[in-house]
Design a protein around this nucleic acid. Sequence first.
DNA 1: GAGTGGTCTAGACCACACG
DNA 2: GTGTGGTCTAGACCACTCT
Lengths: 270, 270
Amino acid sequence: MGGTVTSSVTQLDDQEGQDGPSGGALYRQVAADLREAITTGAYGEAGRLPAEGALAERYGVSRGTVRQALAVLRADGLVTSRRGTRRVVLGNARVQSFSELLSFTHWARALGEEPGGRLESLVRRPADAAEREQLRLEPGAEVYVTLRLRTLSGTAVMVERTVYPPHVGVLVAKLPPDVVSHTEHLREHGILFTDADHTIDVVAANAEDAKLLGCRRGAPLLRERRRTTDPTGRPVEWSQDRYLPGTVSFSVHNSMVTSALSRHARTSDD
Amino acid sequence: MGGTVTSSVTQLDDQEGQDGPSGGALYRQVAADLREAITTGAYGEAGRLPAEGALAERYGVSRGTVRQALAVLRADGLVTSRRGTRRVVLGNARVQSFSELLSFTHWARALGEEPGGRLESLVRRPADAAEREQLRLEPGAEVYVTLRLRTLSGTAVMVERTVYPPHVGVLVAKLPPDVVSHTEHLREHGILFTDADHTIDVVAANAEDAKLLGCRRGAPLLRERRRTTDPTGRPVEWSQDRYLPGTVSFSVHNSMVTSALSRHARTSDD
DNA sequence: GAGTGGTCTAGACCACACG
DNA sequence: GTGTGGTCTAGACCACTCT
């Protein structure tokens, strides 16, 4: 069979954005092509994908490569997989790129909104115990702490408090105060963001939050705490973002084969 | 080399809990052994793992199998990976099993808490547009809707509203009202939970929430909406859980290679 | 029984990090 | 340059689903 298929391996020489180690890998091209076909609806809403062998033949690659491509789609929640039957289309892609998740600026632009922000303060001081623990610092080490108000097309939506270890902090401190995206600038200076752990819960606005966001003190805020590390495992930031309710939500896909999400009792201290 | 290594392939013939298609796969045994070694601290906090080839030799498997095992640990956020250097230990495992995430009962027990609950209501009625959309039902189809109050060692922590499609609902309706875990019973009846999409945000308590949870009306609640599907892609539940603040938090690990987390603007309707 | 995905192997080449 | 992980291949066998 071969003829009714709408998509083919249109040579995607390079996709922009955050491209991992090898952005031009064969299996990524296959994955991109299949993703395109799926979201276009070429296989229907709950339709079945062709067999791995058929895909391998169509794309002119080995079955192993096809499986690698399908693993990507599997992790993104696009398709299921079960021994004995064809893969089934689950839904449309909604997973964002990693950088889009870490960078408020990048994210806002992808939405078509105008990202804005104001650096409220930047201080350098000795790290407290919790910060040393999170950033894996020696006793006596110093940290750089920033407080920023983030806006989406003019409206305040989030307060961001970030703690940087010294080797990142010195770079942040040098940046002009009007720089929109710290993340992008840091990447240009060789600071890589590759892994992040997020914790999401609800917290009451303190006086500072209330003033900046224009809400009552004690009003509920959606809090996302995030610790990001570079490929060597060294922490590069520890951030705490507080969003006004109704402005954002977080989504996760998981399955028996890919978990990465967990639920915890009791919010740990502040 | 072989002698100073503390861990070995202690034959784990079978691990309990939710075991996927092939729970006794070689790479899973290797993954389990490495996970054990890592969390025990055999490689140090930010230590380096042996090379893939060395691991392959130690376990007597091919490099491909080792890589499969390492991919599991990678997705769980236990280790990093970068071309050119050894893998680095990131942190300790905190990811829960899939069933622990879906089943309140299972989760509570794993915490050492006593799960409790009360079925407030169970009704059968025609699905509205949103429900048909979520559960992929035909116009005119009926759904089963449950309202449950969940307790942890006696204290109310969460209100759960679940909508079941007909083929699952009939089973739920037959269950005795004092059954603690619906999830476990459904699995015994052949209803499989394999994939879930979660959305997390903040919502104000309505009159019903307030009465059940004992909070003020309008008080903030942490909301988790979840749509679960079986391996054929058919939705099996659509649930909306509302937690009292301070009782739970959600954690996600993600990286450049494994995303599955996303942030969205504006909370979609109710 | 035929078809399909899950697992495993053995080997190859490449891109990158680091000394 | 050497070692490492990233990618790719070709083939094999098994477990499972479905008809």
